[in-house]
Design a protein around this nucleic acid. Sequence first.
DNA 1: ATAGTTACTGACTCATTGGTCATTAATCAA
DNA 2: TTGATTAATGACCAATGAGTCAGTAACTAT
Lengths: 206, 206
Amino acid sequence: MAKPRFQRRKEDRPAEITAAAMSAFAEKGFAATKVEDVARRAGVSKGLLYLYFKTKEDLFKAVIRNFVSPKVDALIENIETTDMTAGEFLAGPFLKFAQSIPKSPARILVRLLVSEGPRHPDLVAWYWENVVSRGLEALRTLLVKGVRSGEFRPSALDNFPHLLVAPVVFSMLWKQLFEDQATLDTDRMIAQHIEFVLDSIRTTSS
Amino acid sequence: MAKPRFQRRKEDRPAEITAAAMSAFAEKGFAATKVEDVARRAGVSKGLLYLYFKTKEDLFKAVIRNFVSPKVDALIENIETTDMTAGEFLAGPFLKFAQSIPKSPARILVRLLVSEGPRHPDLVAWYWENVVSRGLEALRTLLVKGVRSGEFRPSALDNFPHLLVAPVVFSMLWKQLFEDQATLDTDRMIAQHIEFVLDSIRTTSS
DNA sequence: ATAGTTACTGACTCATTGGTCATTAATCAA
DNA sequence: TTGATTAATGACCAATGAGTCAGTAACTAT
């Protein structure tokens, strides 16, 4: 009764493989990662990988899709269902969210997207539709809500919710590039930034 | 007197080759760019390229070094020699500088650095020493000067000059990824950001 | 048991490309 | 003009790695 050389686990393979790919891409980037290495990490043969993903590129897209969507969905859900004021939400749950991203494994995805994006227009388009535009729209709604209630004064920020997010992106990149040379307290930096913004757009100083 | 098949121009070759490499890398990224393609763009044979650059990686480093240094040097020079107040400088020359970067060809370098950085630690170290730390230090000095003169109140920004630069980095990435899906008025966005920050740290509102 | 199905393996192919080097030709000094 | 020097060429080699496929073994239904 020797233990079998492998098991058949059709259901779990795709998830296991994308997870393996995620960590491999994270370390090496897309081009420098060998498909066989991904397979090895997933404890699977190269052939099997090609049974679930048509090409290496296909695998890459699956990775991005899988790990990003849940995060944004959660944020948007929160924004839409909260009963906090806009200011409270930004200084509370949103801040927490913004601070958590650069420390989560997801931080790697920016790097992947930045480096490979231009060569995968359809992936970028998907990302735009499902992540970026939805996220920005939710933020804008939140800001408008604040303006309507008189909590915020109207400002250019209404057109540039991007600004709320810029330091987060910056932090993600920093952590991957310069962590060794100089640690950056991204939590405090992001908090400070939100504070600056709220300072400027709040109608009353509490 | 047939025209010669090539000319010997030892002096100019390296610059021409790095320029060609710059544009090639910009389009395809590092790994996906073929050395031979770089050579072709430079109007040169592959062999010659290897006469001036030991490896492809070597070429890559040269590219980054060549195109970045001048920019930062200029900014630092300006900061050190200006007789403006800190606020004037930030709202004037610095803003102009920040706005110009995402529109210049140099914007591509972030992408290169982000994607390849982790695999070239020595390049990142060089970049940190010669560009990032020097730039940030100059900005910090500027902020401290503002505080000393009473123009700014002391704030966490003194420890996070990064914040002044985050939206610039963000803009560079945006322009490369989402230009097609949604144009972003980076000039206005960056201006707005600087305004927010100055709003928050200025002691007097003018 | 046993035959049938299919998840899974891994050796192989073949196009690609980083890097070399023997050769060629532009330039220069005498 | 001619010989020496070296910038420049491009055919070539060796390695690499994406993708294939003939075969194998885990599972399943009978």
